[in-house]
Design a protein around this nucleic acid. Structure first.
Lengths: 193, 193
DNA sequence: TGATTACTTGAACGATAGTACAACTAGAAC
DNA sequence: GTTCTAGTTGTACTATCGTTCAAGTAATCA
C-alpha cells in the first residue's frame, strides 16, 4: 500500500497495482459465485472499473483465471514455506493452515478448490494447480523418507480441506493434527478383511 | 434396455427413460466440458432432442444439475454398499473403487468432483454431495470404532481420488490400499517437530 | 513545451444463454 | 370413433456473454 518507488516507474507501478486489484476482484467473485461467475463484466464491476479495462490487462478470460489461481497458489506456497523453514512443529503448522479453511482462510481455500477443479480441463491451469500438492509433499519430505507416507499426508491434507469446506467438518487444530499424524506414521499392524 | 412393463404404463415409462437419457447426456457434458458447459442446449444436443424437451423434464438448470449429481451419488452408493455387504476385503474393495478413477471410472469421478464443488454454493446440492463421504464413513465404521480413524479414512479416500484425477497420481490398487490402511490404523508413536 | 506511451473509456458486434409458449403428435381411456 | 393428456417441436424474447475498437486522458520523456 505504500507508494515508494512510484517515482522510479510510476506507470508500471500503477499497472501492477491494477492487475492486483483485478485479481483480487476475481477471487472475490470466485468465492461468492464460483468460477462460473467470473466474467469480464462481473470482475470489472467488482473492481469498480470498466469492462474494457479488465480485458486490457487480461485479454482473455483464461488469462484472468490462470492469474487468479496463480495468486492463490503463491499465497499458499509462501505459507507452507514459512512452516517448512520455521522452527516449530511442522505438522502442527500444517494443521493450523488446514484448520483456517473453516474461518478466515475459507475464501482462499474455496477459490483454490474451485480453480483446481477447473484445472482438470484447462491445461494452462494444471501446473499451477499442482503446486499446492507439491508444497505439502515438500513439507512431508522433511518429516519422513517413506514416499507412501508422503503421499498419505498429501491425501489426508487434501481430504481434510474438502471435509471442512464441503462438509463443514470440525476444524480443530489438534484434531486435524492427529489425523495428519496417522497418515505420516508407518503402521505396525495389518488388517485383513 | 428391456421394454417390460411398457404395457402397464407406457407414458410414464417413456418419460422416465427420457429423464435418464437426459441425465446421462448431462453427465457426458460435465465430463467433457465441466459443469460450466451444462446448458439446456448442449444437453439437448448431446441427447439428440430439442432444447424445449430438456426444459420440459427439468424446468431449471439447477433441477438438472441436482438430478445429475444424485445419479452419480446413487451409483457410488450402490458400489460402496456392495463392498460393505460383500464377503471380501472391504478396504481392498474401496481401493479398487478409488483406483478405477484413473480408468473406466474417471468420467464418473470427475463429474462427482465437479458437481461437489458446485455444491459448496448451491444449497440444493449439498445434501447429495455429502452422501459420498457418508458412504465411505459407513464402510469405515465396519472396520473400526475410532471416529478419528473413520474421519482419516474418508479424508484419505477423498485425497487419493483428487490425486488421481487432478495430479494423475499412480492408481495401483495395492498402493491405494496401503495408503488407506495407514489412515485407519491407530498409530503407536508420536512425532514431535 | 510537444511527443510519447500507458492507461482508460463508452459503445458496439455477433454469439449464446435461460426460458416461455403456442402448436403438433401419439398413445391411453372411454 | 372421440377425448384427453403426456410428450414433443419450432420459434422467439430478452439478457448477458467475450471481445473489439476508435477515441480520450494523463503521466513521462526529450
Amino acid at each position: 500500500m505504500n507508494d515508494e518507488s512510484e517515482h522510479i516507474d510510476g506507470r508500471k507501478a500503477r499497472g501492477n497495482r491494477r492487475r492486483a486489484e483485478i485479481i483480487d476482484a476475481t477471487l472475490a467473485i470466485v468465492t461468492r459465485d464460483g468460477a462460473a461467475g467470473v466474467t469480464h463484466r462481473t470482475v470489472a464491476k467488482q473492481a469498480g472499473i470498466t469492462t474494457s479495462l479488465s480485458t486490457y490487462y487480461f485479454a482473455t478470460l483464461d488469462d484472468l483465471l490462470v492469474a487468479a489461481l496463480s495468486s492463490v497458489a503463491d499465497t499458499y506456497t509462501t505459507c507452507i514455506r514459512q512452516i517448512i523453514d520455521g522452527p516449530g512443529d511442522k505438522l502442527r503448522g500444517l494443521a493450523e493452515l488446514i484448520a483456517e479453511s473453516a474461518g478466515p482462510g475459507r475464501e482462499r481455500a474455496l477459490a483454490e478448490r474451485e480453480l483446481s477443479t477447473l484445472a482438470a480441463r484447462r491445461p494452462a491451469l494444471a501446473p499451477v494447480a499442482r503446486r499446492w500438492r507439491e508444497n505439502i509433499a515438500e513439507l512431508a519430505a522433511t518429516l519422513t523418507d517413506d514416499p507412501e507416507a508422503i503421499a498419505a499426508l498429501v491425501a489426508a491434507s487434501d481430504g481434510l480441506c474438502t471435509a471442512i469446506l464441503i462438509d463443514n467438518a470440525p476444524a480443530d487444530t489438534d484434531y486435524v493434527r492427529r489425523i495428519l499424524t496417522r497418515a505420516i506414521h508407518a503402521h505396525r499392524d495389518t488388517v485383513v478383511s
